[in-house]
Nucleic acid binder design. Sequence first.
RNA 1: GGCCCCGUGGUGUAGCGGACUAACAUGCCACCCUGUCACGGUGGAGAUCAGGGGUUCAAAUCCCCUCGGGGUCGCCA
Length: 597
Amino acid sequence: MLKSHSCGELNRKHIGNQVTLAGWVDRRRDHGGLIFIDLRDREGVVQVVFNPETSAKSCQLANGMRNEYVVRVSGQVAPRPPGTENPRLATGEIEVIAHSTEILNKSKTPPFYINEEVEVDESLRFKYRYLDLRRNRMKANLILRHRVVKFIRDFLDKKGFIEVETPVLIKSTPEGARDYLVPSRLQPGKFYALPQSPQQLKQLLMVAGVEKYFQIARCFRDEDTRADRQPEFTQLDIEMSFAEEEDIINLMEELFVSMVRAVKPEIKVQKPFPRIAYAEAMARFGTDKPDLRFGLEIKDLSDIVTQSEFAVFRNALAEGGRVKGICAPGCAGYSRGQLEELNRLARENGAEGLVTIALGTSGGSLGKLTMDEVKSVAAKYLRLDQIKQIAECLSANAGDLLLIVAGKTKVVDNVLGELRQEMGYRLKLADPAQLVFAFITDFPLFAWGEEVGRWEPMHHPFTAPKEADVPLLDSAPEKARSRHYDLVCNGCEIAGGSIRIHNSRLQRKVFRLLGYTDEEVEERFGHLLKAFDYGAPPHGGIAPGLDRVVMLLAGEETIREVIAFPKNQGAADLTFDAPATVSEEQLTELHLRLRDE
RNA sequence: GGCCCCGUGGUGUAGCGGACUAACAUGCCACCCUGUCACGGUGGAGAUCAGGGGUUCAAAUCCCCUCGGGGUCGCCA
């Protein structure tokens, strides 16, 4: 090695040692004669002193150094002169007195700051990702991700799981997300597909008797990106034979709580994780991935306003809809503009509008509220006692702002869910140093596909129905609940899993219900069904999105910040400039011709 | 495909019809400086205001189109 120590590891215990360091120039302070270099490597930064009286040669070299030059320095670790220690630096008690110096490589001036935490245009960062990753924040994220993966491997190993790799070149299954295709050279006109997830492969491993499987698996979906979605992403894929819901849920609770405590002990986390039925989550939070760090729960006001004169409410109820609301504490003083913003948010999410009721504060308590202090378009259609009932239902106090939406249940829930999230954010109700996990259970097995005019799986067709609901497959499929469970955290869906169907007859029945012909089933899922006929054990599993988990732990807003070389919204890699055109020869070999469009 | 936001020296921002010959910070270059640590000081270079078109006596600023980036809906079995 060109170095004997890391820059960041040095401390007072090394005083007197001869060390050789190698790293990047983080900063140079030239005092005309005496020169200080902050030398940085992965482990941290240490101050190197170049003194012309110690080594004129070194000093001369240091004179020519610039940021990001790669240099090697040999010298002696020395205590800093009294009064010049830097408590803000981990190595601030000592410094290295350079005796001999070598410039290993020069550097152009970087296109953005490496040594400062400033926002830089993301495309520029992606173009120079190798420089971006030198920055502390990105380096910390890479290390965190490593620790998470290491923890997972050790944890699951101790629990008796074995890691098995599954193929990346596999077969297209046109249902679900759009596949990434890879043309076959050896078989003209045929294509592999990259896996959307190793779902069927891990089920086959259960038939194979692996019993406890996991994989840090790369998955590919050719769909539009989001802050938490990339064309390629990583799942922690887990599957267990002879497992029931409790087994998976308990395993996840233990894994996540112990992981957080190990890699981010400053983050608050608790188990057991609450379990909330899908219908209840929708009713209370307007979403199946609620942020449980704060309340602001949705309440149904239909019964209270059913007698009101307010046409908006009456019409919604007459058409079979509901009237629901949330309470924004302390927001009665919201300006016209602020209210208009909330109204716009409601409309953008499908509501006809938003009814706000501001409760004045001069009375001090709700009991003393008078109509003079109620500000709302609905005020003249509502009686004071109705307003008080609404306020009471929403646990409101004087000075609060009530946000009420009327319409179809689905729209009302969705809009209030968004408003709840928005108000939670505005009022800073979500503690950034806390992770609140929860399991969402009792999902419907199917959802009616409006455009296609048939039943579609709420998650995927391998999800087992609840034992008691199996008869409903024939009579009322919409009522059948599944053995699926989602793990959510801070408003983010971080894992989905289920107990699977392991019986080929039941699996065929589900496929038929989903509208597949026998030929289609054979063509697409024949391998799985055949396997089920050879002693498939009952099994189930779960697949946390690793990128999202690390994102939450890192406190980042997008998974791009925890992926070394992510793609942008246009699914392009700006470092490599991928995707790119290929040569005519390559196309010919693959039996491909490009269409004119 | 829809909707929303953004695009000004290398970087981050200000300017939002006239006094802009485009400001500030930092970075960069040169010189000075032996205890700094976001060192300090003096001087200097650096911008087709994303591109195109229009409105206007006058456009970085208003309007339209295009391009690029981000958020989101659709989509993500």
